[in-house]
């Protein structure tokens, strides 16, 4: 659906410009985002994580990522503060585990990866439609389409997309894809979930996970803070977190709105199809004027192509 080739996209956007100009921006970008009631997700129970980094190692092997800078049993990474911050996923590591030292001396560990948002800001910010939210719940991307503009990196509320600079002229996005190609599309849990000794992560339908999370909170009064992170944030995320310390103390962004990011950026995004739309329409107009009298019965075909590219 979103996996169109770059050539087809360019052809489609030029030819279909006139058609898009008529369609409201919300339809062009907002369609099909939250309509996957059976979407899968993962419930992360931070009370269980011991920071063993097995999940990082499993991700590295599953995704054929480059050799890490330090061994996966080297726990000095927890003291690293690249750019003064805790670690975040990179083009060489789609998931990282961080340690957050609490005021009372307690050590809290948190695994970070793409949260596979219900209405992904990365997807809506991408003007070449490189991203796709699959019915299974994964947010995947087509690196053959990505032009390396880094819109998604800026748009993501969780700072997830990273870029590979192995080619200076064609940096491409790199992030967790929920093991979509190798596991999720066959209904299998991702590699990190499977390896975890502490069963920190539970894989299943997002709707069921929400229920299980609330059961855990109800059955263990005082054990968890009374919120499920990701239930509502930015329209809901596929990966959900339970914690025993306030989320802020584990480095979570707790000031995110409940509305999807798309609502904030859609006004801006409307400009993008406008630019793509008006110019081709204008030049098509010139073309039609200059070829006046000749047959132009192919207009309908163009219209059809254009819609296909943007569905």
């Amino acid at each position: 659906m979103c996996n169109i080739s770059r050539r087809k996209f360019l052809a489609g956007s030029v030819a279909g410009g006139a058609a898009i100009a008529m369609a409201p921006a919300k339809k062009a970008f907002g369609a099909n985002l939250s309509g996957f009631p059976d979407g899968l997700g993962v419930l992360v129970d931070m009370t269980r994580c011991v920071g063993c980094r097995s999940c990082e190692a499993a991700c590295n092997k599953e995704q054929n990522l480059p050799e890490p800078d330090k061994a996966f049993d080297d726990y000095t990474v927890f003291d690293e503060r690249p750019h003064g911050q805790h670690r975040r996923p990179t083009e060489k590591a789609y998931t990282v585990v961080n340690r957050y030292d609490q005021a009372d001396g307690e050590k809290v560990y948190r695994k970070i990866q793409c949260n596979h948002c219900n209405e992904p800001a990365c997807l809506t910010s991408c003007f070449v439609n490189a991203y796709k939210k699959t019915p299974e719940g994964a947010v995947t991307y087509n690196d053959k389409v990505c032009v390396g503009c880094r819109n998604c990196m800026v748009a993501c509320p969780f700072n997830i997309p990273a870029f590979s600079y192995s080619s200076a002229f064609n940096p491409i996005i790199k992030k967790c894809i929920f093991c979509y190609d190798t596991r999720l599309k066959n209904g299998q849990a991702p590699a990190c979930v499977e390896i975890c000794p502490q069963q920190v992560m539970l894989f299943g339908k997002r709707q069921e996970l929400i229920k299980i999370a609330h059961d855990r909170m109800r059955r263990n009064p005082g054990k968890y803070v009374e919120t499920l992170y990701g239930d509502k944030e930015v329209g809901g995320t596929g990966w959900l977190y339970l914690s025993h310390v306030p989320f802020k103390e584990a480095g979570f962004n707790v000031s995110l709105p409940n509305e999807p990011i798309i609502n904030n950026v859609k006004d801006f995004l409307a400009i993008v199809p406008m630019v793509l739309a008006i110019w081709p329409a204008l030049f098509t107009g010139f073309h039609l004027l200059s070829t006046k009298g000749k047959s132009h019965g192919h207009a309908d075909n163009h219209r059809h192509d254009g819609q296909e590219g943007h569905e």
């Binding site: 590295n60 092997k61 800078d69 061994a71 996966f72 049993d73």
Partner: peptide
């Protein structure tokens, strides 16, 4: 090998 540790540790 899985943990890139021991004899499989990154060389640097």
């Amino acid at each position: 090998r899985f943990f890139n540790s021991g004899m499989f540790a990154p060389a640097h």
